[in-house]
């Protein structure tokens, strides 16, 4: 069972929305992080839509934290949308949910 992650990108006003589809674990977290950082670089603000993110481990959390640190440094916003299921549990268990703004859906972004 190989782990896969894909990202779909949509620009909405001042936001670039990346929809994560699949799973982030130790085998592909580096690829996910590279995509997140590269998208942040070219965006005013970045939102990660997690509605189709089935799984993440601490390797994925580190990618999110590094992206969040870079956003803060560059005075950009990096937020999460549509967080649910196991991913929501992991964000809450690690306290990562307290470090990021979380929206119920991408439609709420302004």
């Amino acid at each position: 069972m190989a782990t896969s992650i894909e990202f779909q990108e949509v620009v909405q006003g001042n936001w670039t929305i990346l929809k994560a589809i699949g799973r982030i674990d130790t085998t592909n977290a580096a690829v996910a992080e590279k995509t997140l950082l590269a998208t942040l670089d070219k965006s005013k603000n970045l939102a990660l839509d997690m509605s189709q993110l089935e799984y993440t481990s601490s390797a994925g959390l580190r990618a999110l934290l590094r992206t969040g640190k870079k956003a803060k440094k560059n005075k950009k916003q990096f937020v999460f949308c549509s967080v649910s299921g196991m991913v929501k549990e992991i964000l809450e268990d690690s306290g990562t949910n307290l470090l990021f703004q979380i929206y119920d859906s991408a439609a709420e972004l302004q």
Binding site: S58, L61, R62, K69, K72, S94, F100
Partner: peptide, 12 residues
């Protein structure tokens, strides 16, 4: 976030 350490969550 800017000072948050990246390790240790796995064992938690």
């Amino acid at each position: 976030i800017q000072d948050r350490k990246l390790g240790g969550f796995g064992i938690a």
